[in-house]
């Protein structure tokens, strides 16, 4: 997927970390039934500020209000109460869409179009002149690695390919702000890795990214800051490193220690009034293992990974 670099955006303003791109104030959404009676309080009094150049993660179980927040920010839903501001303007203002890219939960695209037609269509929606559009389509198809399926109708695409073309359409206008709803859902570990790499690369180009996910490792790997939602309420908000660091636990990692040395260290800890919580040999995460195997297999085809 990472064959070509996406052309970097000429940074319009110096990326001040304090520039607020998205702001919600007391944002509330209540879904009503046919008779206007409140049915579900999908989002309750959310206050958020997302700044330029950061990757912000919305984390929470299914039905916690992540997608609702994104839809409110896109103007697909209207707030029951409060405000959703994007680039300082109401989210219902169409003009903001010029600077936004959106990858929906599932790639809702016209299944009777092929990859090129799809990108061409969305390019036209940005009123792009033909030459720019052509160049951009070429770049994006390379970027998401769909060179070999560019003329196939989307109905024939696998889940992963649909995701890629969905991402390509979200980037067609080289947006400043990218909203990704469950970007890694349905992707295999390689796809997930590539998606995460791409997100990081986009950030390196100065773009702001808001992503929602219920897959914790994904959020942990890429997000600068996260908000944890549960049942429409904001439960936690902060930098990932701060949130995950357990202040009263100290962790050592060493290599080449003998059993005697380990015992001695236990003793030292006990003497200082500490308590050994755990001391063992680390395992790889399954993700790391899987990725290693694939990498190995690509390097030496036809061999089982364990036959070293």
């Amino acid at each position: 997927m990472a064959a070509t670099q996406i052309e970097p955006l000429p940074v319009k303003t110096a990326a001040h970390a304090t520039d607020v791109v998205i702001e919600t104030r007391n944002l509330t959404k209540v879904f009503r039934d046919f008779w206007g009676r409140p049915k579900v309080r999908a989002l309750n009094a959310l206050d958020l500020q997302i700044r330029r150049g950061e990757i912000f993660g919305l984390l929470g179980p299914n039905g916690s209000g992540k997608s609702t927040t994104i839809k409110l920010l896109l103007g697909l839903l209207f707030p029951t109460n409060g405000q959703a501001l994007v680039f300082g303007k109401e989210a219902t203002d169409v003009a903001k869409n010029e600077r936004i890219g959106y990858l929906p939960e599932e790639s809702y695209l016209y299944r009777f179009l092929n990859a090129e037609e799809t990108l061409d269509f969305y390019g036209r929606l940005f009123d792009m002149p033909t030459a720019t559009r052509k160049r951009r389509i070429e770049e994006l198809i390379q970027l998401v690695g769909l060179q070999h399926s560019r003329r196939r109708q989307l109905r024939e695409y696998s889940k992963g390919m649909t995701r890629r073309i969905g991402l390509a359409q979200a980037l067609i206008n080289d947006p400043e702000l990218i909203l990704l709803d469950e970007p890694t859902s349905g992707l295999d570990p390689i796809g997930t890795r590539e998606m995460k790499d791409l997100i990081l690369r986009l950030r390196a180009q100065g773009k702001t990214i808001l992503m929602s996910s219920h897959l914790l490792p994904d959020v942990q790997d890429v997000c600068d800051r996260i908000a944890i939602l549960h049942q429409g309420e904001l439960k936690e908000l902060g930098r990932v490193t701060d949130l995950l660091t357990v202040q009263d636990v100290t962790q050592f990692r060493a290599q080449g220690l003998s059993k005697a040395a380990e015992d001695e260290i236990r003793e030292v800890i006990a003497r200082h009034g500490g308590q050994v919580v755990g001391m063992d040999h680390p395992t790889l995460s399954l993700e790391e293992l899987f990725l290693n195997i694939v990498k190995e297999s690509e390097a030496r085809p036809g061999r089982r990974a364990s036959q070293k």
Binding site: L74, G75, L76, V94, A95, N97, E98, I100, Y102, P104, E106, S107, Y108, L109, Y110, Y122, L125, F126, D127, G166, Q169, N173
Partner: peptide, 10 residues
């Protein structure tokens, strides 16, 4: 929901 990707464009 194909309309989602359309109306989020300008």
């Amino acid at each position: 929901r194909t309309i989602y990707t359309v109306v989020t464009k300008p």
